[in-house]
Simulated assay, not measured.
Amino acid sequence: MGLLCSFCVCLQKKLKAANSAGADKADDEDVSTDIFFELNTLQIATNFFSEANKLGNGGFGPVYKGLMPNGQQVAVKKLSIDSRQGVKQFSNEVKLLLRIQHRNLVILLGCCVEGPEKMLVYEYLPNRSLDYFIFDKKKSRSLDWTTRFHIITGIVKGLLYLHEEAPSRIIHRDIKASNILLDEKLNPKISDFGLARLFPGEDTHLNTFRIAGTHGYMAPEYAIHGYLSVKSDIFSFGILVLEIVSGRKNHDVQLGGQQIDLLGYAWLLYQEGKILELVDQSLTKYNVDEAAMCIQLGLLCCQASVTDRPDMNTTHLMLSSDSFTLPKPGKPGIHGRAPRRTTTSTSGFTKTNTSTQSGVTKASTSNSLMEDYSRNSISVSSFDEGR
């Protein structure tokens, strides 16, 4: 509590200093200090956080739709009182989102800290999150191939900004379908930076025993060894691309045999020269070349070898250049699945929650965990709270 309040006070001082330093600039370039919302304002906007205004639940806490006095719609994300690591995530998300601006990143409008209440206030995106559409057989039909390809390229641009163009390199750590929000024109926006890590200076990676993220999307070197780099996001993005193209989750127990695991099934089809069999059957029309390219790109991003995965600059070039020839992908990496996993559907803030604390149990059988393609060589005991 004291840490967060001190953070907010420091944040206010920094913004005021920024205004003073830029006093000689034009009015439209002034830095706004009005990012702190009063609790009473948000209570009225959300009808006192009524169930009718509730968009859903996440590891962070409930999310509510609100209508501000000026007519603006917002999404209010509350920190659960009993969330053990929520304060750190809260501070992290505020600090990061106040520093970054991009059309493919969700916009943070402000925050509220009063008594035990801690909230983040975002722009409201009416089309919810990507998983709300892509994993529903009926709703997925509204996402034609052009729209899906547009969503993929938009996510690439957002990640390229975070990895290469932001003031400091940022690794999201939780890229997944439920953290991609869609605006009124179905433009994608990366959301939920509570687990993001900032890499100041020239640092490119770190080793940590504090593992956080969502099973099925986590890079093996990070999930098993705690090796975190931009290539961790690349792996998650690769899984997400395969999901967007196929219209199915990365692990679906309803699909038997080899199809149960999306990455393994995509690799098998690629080896057999049947890559287009992965394309969502609800797509009656699609660009064959683009679909094949996206599947191959997904496999390239999910390679076991970290150095062989393309960075976001290369990925963007692959998608935007007609003359770029994609290399052949190598073996995909291991990606673990949680023994306990629950998914709560929300409006724009769907969360996949994994039983969490800290630490990771290493595989019992592996001399080369990064190169062996095995679904049985990872055993995860617990992960950071909130996802």
Rank of each mutant, 00 (worst) to 15 (best):
I295T: 02
Q281C: 02
T343V: 09
I334H: 05
F349T: 03
V288E: 12
L319D: 09
K285S: 10
T284D: 13
D322G: 05
Q281H: 01
F324H: 09
T352F: 09
Q296W: 01
R309W: 00
T315E: 09
S305C: 04
T354Q: 10
L283H: 04
G330L: 08
D311T: 03
K331E: 13
P327H: 04
H335W: 06
L326Y: 09
Q281P: 00
A338T: 05
T342K: 05
P327E: 06
N287Q: 13
G348E: 00
P329H: 15
E290Y: 06
N313W: 03
M318A: 13
G330S: 15
L297P: 00
D322F: 08
D289E: 14
T314E: 12
Q303G: 09
R309F: 01
T325G: 10
D311A: 02
H335R: 14
F324N: 09
N353Q: 11
T315C: 08
F324K: 14
R337P: 05
L299D: 00
L317P: 07
I295G: 04
T354V: 11
A338V: 01
G298I: 00
S355D: 12
G330K: 12
P310C: 08
D308T: 05
S347N: 14
L299P: 08
Q296D: 03
P332K: 05
T284I: 07
A338I: 08
R340Y: 10
F324C: 15
C302H: 07
G348T: 05
K331C: 08
T343W: 11
T344W: 07
A304S: 12
G348H: 02
Q357H: 14
D308K: 07
D308I: 00
T325C: 14
L297H: 03
S320F: 05
T350L: 07
H316M: 03
C294N: 01
S347K: 06
L317C: 12
